[in-house]
């Protein structure tokens, strides 16, 4: 057992306790948490700072407003309903089209309007919110994924998660929905996590749950060695979040829209640890390196350059593995 602990430490793996105590609690002031826990506030702050986000169609704040859902949706056939305080992707419904009076989810199942209304009612009563308190439902633009991901994701929209410490991108991964994850980009629901070389934006190794793979389980296409477009823009975008939200340790989720380019989806003050499995690298050495040179990294350009210089993928291209 102690040997295993030592091995994890040698590998530089960040554990949940250390993430909570040292990074989440150590770098993030309690007062700024609501900025990222409430997706409505996140969106407003981003717009103010000039960061692109999925456009908002409307919010539903009280039960009475649910009656006007149909009016609010208007002619939109594609939209996303999400709880403003949700976590881990719970409570998000993605609608990709209409069939007569029914709504078609990303996975093809049909929902009636009353079913949608009930879901929103659940959202409002706090079923998916972090503390169980009252919540609001956001209805927003449904992202159309960039063609680069077309062959390597099953329905849904893949996103790119970048961990940021003090404004310096630390590690990145692409999360590709699978049939098992029901079109959601969440690793614990069965989405594919693909490590991305921070310096180049080329996908490296992939992990499904805790197993290392190289192909998408549904499309059977190679998921490694793919260049993510606009990589430097994504790094800058994630670095900017430190200045916007004042949170030292962050997970930034970005989606690539076919038409609108990179959009900031949400920001997480307690980003998960699976990114380490996807990248087959521990976070700790990188985090310690940033902590050492924190003073010199005062603007976005410097931070991104620092990341590109120091955090090149340690592994050779994963095609050689397995």
């Amino acid at each position: 057992m102690f040997k295993d602990f030592a091995e994890l430490a040698d590998f530089g793996i960040l554990g949940l306790n250390e993430r909570n105590a040292v990074y989440t609690l150590g770098y993030n002031q309690r007062g700024f948490f609501p900025l990222v826990d409430d997706k409505a506030q996140t969106k407003a702050l981003c717009i103010k700072a000039g960061v692109a986000v999925p456009p908002l169609y409307g919010t539903i704040e009280i039960e009475r407003q649910i009656r006007d859902l149909a009016k609010l949706l208007g002619a939109n056939t594609e939209f996303v309903i999400k709880p403003a305080h949700g976590c881990g992707g719970d409570g998000i419904i993605v609608i990709k089209g209409r069939v007569k009076d029914k709504y078609r989810k990303a996975n093809g199942t049909l929902l009636t309007l009353p079913k949608l209304e009930h879901h929103i009612s659940n959202v409002l009563s706090g079923m998916y919110s972090l503390g169980g308190g009252a919540d609001v439902a956001l209805i927003e633009y449904c992202v159309n994924s960039d063609p680069v991901f077309e062959s390597i994701s099953y329905q849904g929209v893949p996103d790119i998660r970048i961990i940021v410490l003090l404004g310096v991108p630390v590690m990145a991964m692409a999360r590709l929905p699978t049939r098992m994850s029901d079109g959601k980009a969440n690793l614990h629901q069965g989405a594919l996590g693909v490590g991305v070389d921070l310096a180049t934006g080329i996908t490296q190794s992939a992990v499904l749950f805790n197993n290392i793979v190289t192909e998408h389980p549904d499309t059977a296409n190679q998921v490694t060695g793919i260049q993510i477009p606009d990589w430097k823009t994504l790094l800058e975008l994630s670095s900017q979040c430190y200045d916007i939200f004042k949170l030292g340790y962050l997970g930034v989720d970005i989606v690539l829209d076919k038409d609108k380019g990179p959009l900031l989806l949400e920001v997480n003050a307690r980003p998960g640890l699976n990114i380490q499995i996807a990248n087959r690298a521990g976070l700790l050495p990188r985090l310690h390196l940033i902590e050492k040179s924190a003073e010199t990294l005062f603007d976005v350009q410097k931070r991104v350059d620092f990341a590109i210089q120091h955090f090149q993928a340690a592994l050779p291209n994963s095609k050689t593995v397995n």
């Binding site: 994890l8 554990g15 380490q276 499995i277």
Partner: peptide
């Protein structure tokens, strides 16, 4: 409350990583 070491079950969670590494 300030224990920042690994959790026992994290050994299992990151096992694939250690083997591959």
């Amino acid at each position: 409350g300030r224990y920042t070491g690994y959790r026992l079950l994290e050994i299992r969670r990151f096992k694939s990583l250690l083997q591959a590494g």
